[in-house]
Design a protein around this nucleic acid. Structure first.
Length: 337
RNA sequence: GGAGAGGUGGCUGAGCGGCUGAAAGCGGUGGGUUGCUAACCCAUUGAGGGGGUUUUGCCCCCUCCCCGGGUUCGAAUCCCGGCCUCUCCGCCA
């Protein structure tokens, strides 16, 4: 969520970023509500001031043993009026909150324009795609043949999209996230954290998954907890509502977690095998940095991630997502595939 | 799940209807003293928001003692609900 103060100062760019794509992101309405809010705040504070003064006077009279009943009678209706102001402010706040949460982040200047992934910009590529003489078999067939991937039993235990790794498959999975964590903590300066896999509503809202993506989450009823769709959620929320001193920065975290996604409505597209599943393992990297260095920090984080693929000798290409492909909260985003 | 204790400024901790934005100590900052260090002495030191202004300095106001309600002219203080922490008991694939 963008800071209201930032929106006040940069309303034009925010409007441009919100343009069209997000129906509820009415920046003009927000600024209008903001003006009302400040007006009502001022009025209610004037009343509060009077209340404080008179109350003090009553206290003084009483201590001197004098009669304060006239003053007290005159204040009888003040609590009610304060409540009306509070109610009005709450209404304004609520509507402002809804608009604020619908306003997307402003893309960085170098984010390419464009509607969808076809406008993404390839930045670089690494390695050579391996050539095969015959048609290679897909991983789900290989996995089954080697008995290291068992989709049938995964489905029996949980349902489609919950792969079961067995033997060397399980070991490979474990080896991969171990390898990534060891690399990032040992060579790249990240601190390892192992966060909860279930988080509360405030955390999900803090990283922008809610309210938008509620239907894509696994939710625990009764406790109002959510299974994390990515370690980004618990790790970023470590410092929610905290003010970090710039002396402490930068902070680098790396975390392995299982990730859970309902992938609601995704059936039919890239759904075979382990490409798109409800539960998967991921090592996430999160940085808390000073704003002026954030561009460089993103580049070095990208390099750290690429290093994983280089050491595994997996060819890849890096592309910069265009405006239309950028996620709601993102300022700038790279894709490695 | 049951019983108890508790959540106050950067930290420890007092206050338990008006004199409290909050004692005291620690820490921080500035200064003093002292061969150095330590110690000591003096001063100063919370945050957010709104308004004003002779606009970088200053003035005024409001809010904040876990969160949300309530009682009251007035709440850190009393009442209700929630969240969290600690101790004991129970349960535990």
């Amino acid at each position: 969520m963008l800071d209201l103060n930032y929106i006040r100062k940069h309303s034009e760019e925010v409007k441009k970023a919100a343009g069209g794509k997000h129906d509820h992101a009415d920046v003009d309405r927000l600024l209008e509500l903001d003006r009302d809010y400040r007006g009502v705040t001022f009025e209610s504070e004037q009343l509060r001031k009077k209340q404080n003064e008179v109350s003090k006077e009553i206290g003084r009279l009483k201590k001197e043993g004098k009669d304060a009943s006239t003053l007290m009678a005159g204040m009888k209706d003040v609590p009610g009026r304060m409540k009306e102001y509070a109610e009005k402010l709450r209404e304004l706040e609520e509507e402002m909150g809804e608009i604020l949460m619908a306003i997307p982040n402003v893309p960085a200047e170098d984010v390419p324009p464009g509607e969808d992934e076809t406008a993404n910009e390839e930045v670089r590529s690494w390695g050579e795609m391996r050539k095969f003489d015959d048609t290679p078999r897909p991983h789900w067939e290989l996995g089954k043949a080697l008995d290291i991937l068992d989709f049938e039993r995964g489905s029996k235990i949980s349902g489609a999209g919950f792969p079961l790794f067995k033997g060397l498959g399980a070991r490979l999975e474990r080896a991969l996230f171990n390898f990534m964590l060891d690399l990032h903590t040992g060579k790249h300066g990240y601190r390892e954290v192992f966060p909860p896999f279930l988080v509360n509503r405030a955390s999900m809202t803090g990283t922008g998954q809610l309210p938008k993506l509620e239907d894509d989450m696994y939710r625990i009823t009764g406790n109002d907890l959510f299974l994390i769709p990515t370690a980004e959620v618990p790790v970023t929320n470590m410092h929610r509502d905290e003010i970090l001193s710039c002396k402490e920065l930068p902070i680098y975290y790396a975390a392995y977690t299982a990730c859970f996604r309902r992938e609601a409505g995704a059936a039919g597209k890239d759904t075979r095998g382990i490409i798109r599943v409800h539960q998967f393992d991921k090592v996430e990297m999160v940085k808390f940095v000073r704003p002026e260095s954030s561009g460089d920090e993103l580049e070095s984080l990208l390099e750290n991630a690429e290093r994983v693929l280089q050491l595994l000798k997996l060819p890849y290409r890096v592309s910069k997502l265009c405006v239309g492909d950028l996620s709601f909260a993102a300022h700038k985003c790279y894709d490695i595939e």
